[in-house]
């Protein structure tokens, strides 16, 4: 005689199927709710992400964001051979200086040894990697010795950092020296 069972022979199988179906439906439902609204608008990504990226803060302005307030520097900088050097490379990003049209902080000016390091980023002869359209290269401290100035001189004692040859030319004019122009 077979014992009597409360459940039918396939009760558990049916229950498992029901549970799996419920889980699947719940899964599909939750997934549908979790997909961001703009997802898939342009491709397999969140469309609004493009807007997020576009609205990233612009921290480096351009020279044009500096010059309106610094007209004297502008005049000097663009008359010299450093006119391709960006303001923000040496001084830092405009966003650290101006926010919402107001000055929030001063930008650093390199001084002393730091200015020498800065100049030598481009003008260091020993690196020997400055290609064809070359810029003026110097070898330190040979350059100081050649020019017969103190060995501890920093670059900005002879060269205006914005227009490197300005003072040199002025000095030469005062001294009546004109011939060396071609060599520069």
């Amino acid at each position: 005689m077979q014992p009597s069972y409360r459940s039918k022979y396939n009760t558990h199988v049916i229950r498992i199927i029901v549970i799996l179906v419920v889980l699947a439906i719940a899964g599909i439902g939750v997934r549908a709710m979790m997909i961001p609204e703009s997802f898939g608008r342009y491709g397999h990504y969140r469309g609004e992400a493009v807007v997020d990226e576009m609205n990233r803060e612009i921290r480096n302005g351009t020279n044009a964001s500096c010059l309106p307030c610094h007209p004297y520097i502008k005049e000097m900088h663009f008359s010299g051979i450093h006119k391709t050097v960006s303001c923000e490379f040496c001084h830092g990003p405009v966003a650290a200086h101006i926010q919402d049209g107001k000055v929030i902080d001063k930008l650093p000016k390199k001084q002393g040894e730091a200015i020498k390091t800065l100049c030598l980023r481009c003008h260091n002869q020993i690196i020997r990697a400055r290609p064809r359209e070359s810029i003026k290269m110097v070898e330190m401290p040979k350059h100081l010795e050649d020019k017969k100035v103190g060995i501890d001189h920093t670059c900005d004692q002879c060269h205006n950092v914005h227009a490197p040859l300005m003072w040199v030319k002025q000095a030469k004019a005062m001294m009546g020296v004109v011939e060396e122009e071609a060599k520069q």
């Binding site: 921290r59 480096n60 050097v85 960006s86 490379f89 990003p93 980023r121 481009c122 290609p131 810029i135």
Partner: peptide, 19 residues
């Protein structure tokens, strides 16, 4: 590559732009 002088201004600007 024939123009680059290795000054690193680009790297500085990039670091400043994006922290």
């Amino acid at each position: 590559i024939t123009r680059c002088i290795g000054c690193g201004s680009c790297c500085v600007a990039d670091k400043n732009e994006y922290n």
